[in-house]
């Protein structure tokens, strides 16, 4: 039995509710969990499930995504045979924003025509979990399904398995069938296709608004949850940075926090997620916050319920506060002075 799969990551979607994190980047490239980008989870799951050919369909602001993925080496996808493919949408005005829009796939239909893999797995880029797609495929084959949709507590995770030949049929005949995306097919009942559900029971975080970005980030501080997401046998890969280990000085106080490499911690950090190469100055207290890569927090600052994007400089003595329901988001690359938010 041929169990090979193509991995297709649809990264075309734009979600307004994720602004301002998406001002300079697509959703797939949003930093998450201290050192990753959202796409790392789906991509690592694919690789850990034995998928050797992955096609990424981006649309908006994909510079940071391309920079992150490079040749695919960090995911072991820099292959002579198969590997990582990048298929940007040539037309920004296509109105289809359902995941798995056939119009996007049609632009690069050669990829599907040339691939020998019998099955295709289509996923969005912003569902965070640690799932074995081989288990899903096994069920798909056993139950003789035409399309399997992966769900979690009844909610669609926008992950679908189908035969590559069926996908090609749907792409080519979209104007006759009027099914414009895989979602259209799954939601409609007027066809003869057998649609199956696969319930995934592990931890899932779907990141589609700032509020749930913040809430799901905070969930990672529960050992029961990060242990599920960071399974040692099924690692999540990301672009490596050669940062040194994190240094804590004599004044550092750190509680219930996730801290990436290359940081210099001189202050107080509690219930927070600190990305790579962040500096936390003396006398500063950070609580319930997310500080992204290379941001520098000065001395004697007070931060509570804030999300600080990359490369932000917070000057000495600044106080920034949000609430758990409405975290205060600081945009990438900005400087926060002491008198700015009075």
């Amino acid at each position: 039995m041929n169990k090979t799969m193509l991995g297709v990551i649809d990264a075309t979607k734009y979600i307004d509710a994720l602004e301002p994190l998406t001002i300079n980047r697509c959703i797939a490239a949003i930093p998450f969990a201290g050192r990753y980008r959202l796409i790392d989870f789906v991509l690592s799951n694919m690789v850990n499930s034995g998928i050797e050919s992955v096609a990424i369909f981006p649309k908006y602001q994909y510079r940071s995504l391309m920079d992150h993925l490079g040749s695919g080496k960090n995911w072991d996808l820099n292959r002579k045979r198969d590997g990582l493919f990048f298929f940007p949408s040539p037309d920004l005005n296509m109105p289809y924003d359902h995941i798995g829009a056939f119009e996007h796939f049609e632009q690069h239909v050669d990829y599907f025509l040339r691939s020998k893999q019998k099955y295709a797995l289509i996923c969005n880029s912003y569902t965070v979990c640690n799932i074995d797609y081989q288990m899903v495929l096994k069920r798909h084959i056993e139950n003789e399904c035409d399309i399997t949709e992966i769900r979690h507590q009844g909610k669609s995770l926008e992950m679908f398995i189908l035969e590559t030949s069926l996908l090609l049929d749907l792409i080519i005949n979209r104007n006759e069938t009027r099914y414009m995306s895989i979602v259209d097919v799954v939601r409609d009942h007027r066809h003869q296709l057998k649609i199956c559900d696969y319930e995934y029971c592990g931890y899932v975080a779907v990141i589609d608004s700032i509020d749930n970005y913040f809430a799901h980030s905070m969930e990672l501080l529960h050992p029961m949850i990060w242990k599920q997401l960071f399974d040692k046998l099924r690692p999540i890969y990301t672009k490596v940075k050669d940062e040194p280990p994190t240094k804590y000085t004599g004044e550092a106080v750190v509680k219930n926090s996730m801290i990436a490499n290359g940081c210099m911690i001189e202050g107080h950090v509690e219930n927070s997620i600190i990305f790579r190469a962040v500096k936390v100055g003396k006398g500063t207290v950070i609580k319930n916050s997310i500080i992204m890569q290379k941001s520098q927090i000065g001395e004697n600052c007070e931060l509570d319920c804030v999300i600080i994007d990359k490369d932000v400089k917070v000057e000495n003595g600044v106080t920034l506060r949000g609430t758990a329901r409405q975290p205060f988001v600081i945009r990438k690359g900005t400087v926060q002075g002491a008198l700015m938010n009075l």
Binding site: L229, P235, T246
Partner: peptide, 10 residues
């Protein structure tokens, strides 16, 4: 690089 998740301080 060992590629492990960030450190967790309880």
């Amino acid at each position: 690089n060992p590629n492990q998740p960030p450190q967790y301080i309880a």
